[in-house]
């Protein structure tokens, strides 16, 4: 049996983290945590952790929502991502997220 868990965590009116986890046999097989900021009416991704293609990595996006950097990163949990996004907010863009 596969379980899909979709969660939206609103940090502020213009900031949120979208999460998707796929769980099989009690183990997380897929995760994605996308920190988004609302800009001129559109929810643009800023930073995203996921393990698509079974490779845990972190992506950074520019102000137009285009991917500008992708690096391998430790697997994350939603509460860690919410914690990071709450503290650092848009400054996440300037940080070395692969080391976190």
């Amino acid at each position: 049996m596969e379980e899909a868990e979709r969660q939206t965590v609103w940090l502020r009116k213009t900031e949120r983290v979208d999460s998707l986890r796929i769980i099989r046999d009690g183990r997380v097989r897929f995760y994605s945590y996308t920190y988004r900021v609302k800009d001129r009416g559109r929810w643009k991704p800023v930073v995203r952790w996921d393990n698509y293609d079974s490779q845990p990595h972190v992506d950074k996006y520019d102000e137009n929502g285009g991917l500008i950097e992708q690096r391998p990163a430790m697997a994350k949990e939603l509460k860690e991502v919410v914690h990071l996004a709450t503290i650092f907010r848009r400054n996440l863009m300037a940080m070395d997220l692969a080391e976190l």
Binding site: E3, A4, R12
Partner: peptide, 15 residues
């Protein structure tokens, strides 16, 4: 055989 669970969380009192 699958299931879907969805939740929306508000972390701030302003919301």
């Amino acid at each position: 055989v699958c299931s879907l669970k969805e939740t929306v969380h508000y972390e701030s009192a302003e919301l």
